[in-house]
Simulated assay, not measured.
Amino acid sequence: MNQSPFASITPVVKNLLIINVLFFIGSYVLERAGINLDVLLSAFYFNSPLFRPWQVVTYMFMHANFPHIFFNMFALFMFGPTLEYIMGPKRFLQYYFITGIGALALQMLVQAIEVHGVIGSFTVANRDIGPYVNYAGFNKLKEIYYGITLGASGSIFGLLLAFGFLFPNVEMMVLFIPVPIKAKYLIGGYIVLELIGGFGQFAGDSVAHFAHLGGALFGFLLLKYWRMQRPDNFY
């Protein structure tokens, strides 16, 4: 009798998968009833009139569309159980949330620097961007103050970093690439692409690259702080 591929999912990963899917379904259902959870639960810039403290956590469970949640949950399903087994459930859950919050922290830091570049301050007086009449500056402030950050991608990048850090020589197959690539090269290359995307600020790019980088950065710092090492007999 074939065993279900879901039988090996560890408890924390399983619950995170369920919660993310419930949030996604709930957002879709409530949107049809005129309730926009994106505004309530996604993250806004800390000085935005739409920012609420709980968004620092809830934004991790919101997703823009099906491909967004699918690829994040697929990565959680693929890499999460191994990392939960190595770290233990409690530390894995801490890692997941700390990297997610760290991802948002870096994203907001970059936004604050951009705001400062427009008005010479990190916050807008009375949270009113109207007086800043320069067209380019106004649009930039509008994008920062009323744009949302959402998704588990920051935490997922933390997981990818952890996997590449703990299992650098594990060979992985990638779609459209016919040869296996070691995790350290594949994940390292992915992080470099995020750096290029973040600093390049290409037109039409709505991906929060610095949130991804923040998840990887905080993941690396946590692993070093915890002095995590791969067991010799694993893989």
Rank of each mutant, 00 (worst) to 15 (best):
H116R: 14
D38G: 13
Q111S: 03
A103H: 07
V56Y: 05
F70I: 13
N233Y: 15
D232I: 14
V170A: 07
N139F: 00
G102R: 04
V118W: 03
A136V: 09
L30K: 05
N15W: 13
N233A: 12
P178V: 01
Y225H: 15
M87T: 07
Q3W: 05
D128G: 12
A105E: 06
D205F: 05
P81W: 15
F51M: 06
L223I: 13
K140L: 04
F6H: 07
K90T: 07
I191K: 11
M108V: 05
E171Y: 05
V110Y: 04
L109A: 15
A125L: 12
L213S: 03
V179F: 13
Y96G: 07
R91L: 08
A64I: 04
S4P: 09
K90L: 14
M78A: 14
A183E: 11
M108A: 06
S121K: 15
F167P: 15
G80Q: 10
M62F: 09
P53G: 13
V12K: 11
L223A: 11
F167G: 11
L93V: 13
K224P: 02
F163R: 05
L213V: 03
L150N: 06
P168I: 03
E171M: 11
I86N: 12
I86G: 06
I181K: 10
P131C: 05
I18F: 08
G200W: 02
